[in-house]
Simulated assay, not measured.
Amino acid sequence: MNNLQVVTYTSKYANDWNRFIMASKNGTFLCHRDFMEYHQDRFQDHSFLIYNDKKLVALFPANIKNHILYSHQGLTYAGLIIGKHASLELVFQIFQKLLETIDTLGIEEIIIKPSPKIYHLHPSDELDYLLFKVQAELIRRDLTLSIDTGQTIDVYSSNRKRGLKKAQKNELLIKEEQDFELFWNQILIPNLEEKHGVEPVHTLDEIRYLKSKFPKNIRQFNVYKDKQLVAGTTIFETVKVAHAQYISANNTKQKLGSLDLLFHHLIHEVFASKPYFDFGVCSVNQGKQINSGLQAWKESFGASSVSQDFYSVFPKNHHLLNHTLI
């Protein structure tokens, strides 16, 4: 048995945490402490570090609310973050030790949303198997629409092709910007308010702060017609995925083809070397329904479905991992 120790995160472990994230199998900058803590006032952090003989071997980003541990409500995905060289046996032992520790704290339930596989730098499906072993319950499944850029993308719908021709005829200009104010205030906030009665997940100040911390990972692309902003998208870029965090355009998008040109440019030029371009979710209502208009629009660029699962786990079931390896 390995000499495992589970430690509750405090700020003194920040450097260890961040170094491990960037060298892990399945962590991204979203799990970096600078990203996790931009909204720390909204979540009670209860993350864990797992050491083996004093060497950091795994992380579990988490927050606690109403005696339930979430991994992590402030992140799109999280789960168990493991090192590149961790053996299957070690990961089994890490997870069992983690559940045992959480059980002794009196926490009765954990909600885990593992990162989708397109974000993994190396195959790391150990958690999938472990969730099966501890009889985790699948409580939600979202669908995101992503393009595998390694395949020939020749499935644009007729609408997208017409839109691209309109955009080229209208001589639209695409620019990468370093600030988000125009897009947030002129396009994104008004559209979300009008169509859905909501605000962006990130305020303007928050997205600016995150950009200052992750300048190579958070990028803004705007579309202009005669120097007038008409559309844009905010991209969260990881090693393998360019993810469209926000997409919005004014009411001229059909006439001008602004989004058609923007995403053609991003997919085929800016992020052509990325294995995946992710348009984001098309599921709503906790994964129970699909926004068919959104789904059809994203598929019209050649995107197809990738699932993201949410599980309920009872820490007391850690004993079900006994004798797994024979």
Score class of each variant (00 low, 15 high):
residue 46 H to Q: 08
residue 53 D to S: 14
residue 47 S to V: 09
residue 70 Y to C: 03
residue 77 Y to H: 12
residue 53 D to I: 10
residue 75 L to V: 11
residue 73 Q to G: 09
residue 46 H to K: 11
residue 60 F to L: 09
residue 80 L to W: 03
residue 78 A to F: 01
residue 29 F to V: 07
residue 83 G to I: 13
residue 63 N to S: 06
residue 57 V to K: 01
residue 27 G to C: 09
residue 33 R to G: 06
residue 69 L to M: 01
residue 26 N to W: 06
residue 61 P to Y: 06
residue 50 I to T: 12
residue 39 H to Q: 15
residue 49 L to H: 05
residue 24 S to Y: 05
residue 84 K to Q: 14
residue 88 L to S: 13
residue 83 G to H: 08
residue 33 R to F: 07
residue 72 H to L: 09
residue 92 F to E: 07
residue 53 D to Y: 11
residue 44 Q to D: 13
residue 44 Q to T: 15
residue 51 Y to Q: 06
residue 70 Y to N: 00
residue 89 E to Y: 14
residue 43 F to D: 05
residue 32 H to D: 13
residue 58 A to E: 04
residue 80 L to F: 04
residue 90 L to F: 06
residue 29 F to L: 01
residue 33 R to P: 06
residue 44 Q to L: 14
residue 38 Y to M: 14
residue 24 S to E: 02
residue 37 E to N: 15
residue 58 A to Y: 00
residue 46 H to P: 01
residue 23 A to D: 11
residue 62 A to G: 07
residue 45 D to T: 13
residue 58 A to W: 04
residue 47 S to L: 05
residue 92 F to W: 12
residue 88 L to R: 12
residue 89 E to G: 15
residue 72 H to M: 11
residue 46 H to I: 10
residue 57 V to H: 04
residue 47 S to A: 08
residue 23 A to W: 02
residue 59 L to Y: 06
residue 66 N to H: 11
residue 92 F to G: 05
residue 46 H to A: 07
residue 73 Q to N: 12
residue 23 A to S: 14
residue 81 I to K: 07
residue 42 R to S: 10
